[in-house]
């Protein structure tokens, strides 16, 4: 079975083994209480996200780039600024590549590994925001 997206965060062999025998979850609802079977993160459009990102960016452009604090949740396992050491490096990738991979993890298509759980914690807007910031890291 072909993966939906290019698997860059983990290798295919790793992905296969990490799909593993399934996962125990406390609940099958997202943080708004909606069932996760219907995709829970379609409620904020890219356009509105872009607007809010620009607004925040204009106010505090010098000191606090949008998405940086969210993206720092990645650093414990992927290294400071996504540059390693650790699991796959995130720096040097496009926002689209990172975002689509996160969406794929959150959808469960990548199995029930730790990264799937992690991705399911974010809102769609957060995934877009942190992906956009990570793309600034070369």
């Amino acid at each position: 079975m072909q993966p939906v997206h290019q698997s860059f965060l983990i290798s295919e062999s790793q992905a296969a083994r990490r799909r593993g025998p399934g996962v125990h979850s406390e609940s099958l609802t997202d943080r708004e209480g909606n069932p996760t079977k219907t995709h829970p993160r379609a409620w904020l459009t890219a356009a509105s996200l872009l607007a809010s990102t620009l607004a925040v960016g204009a106010a505090q452009a010098q000191t606090t780039p949008a998405g940086r604090l969210l993206a720092s949740n990645c650093f414990q396992c992927h290294g400071t600024n996504g540059k390693g050491p650790g699991f796959e490096k995130l720096a040097g990738r496009s926002a689209k590549e990172i975002y689509e991979k996160l969406v794929s993890f959150a959808s469960g298509k990548e199995g029930n590994g730790l990264m799937a759980k992690h991705a399911m914690g974010y809102t769609d807007a957060q995934m877009q925001s942190l992906s956009a910031w990570l793309a600034t890291q070369k």
Binding site: P21, R31, G121
Partner: peptide, 27 residues
């Protein structure tokens, strides 16, 4: 809740990942 959970079981891959995680976290 959707972002919280544990592996269903344990294995040597998990042990190997633990080493990578620890090194990354300390770094």
């Amino acid at each position: 809740p959707a972002g919280s959970g544990a592996s269903a079981g344990w294995d040597s891959d998990g042990f190997q990942d633990m080493g990578i995680w620890f090194k990354a976290l300390m770094g």
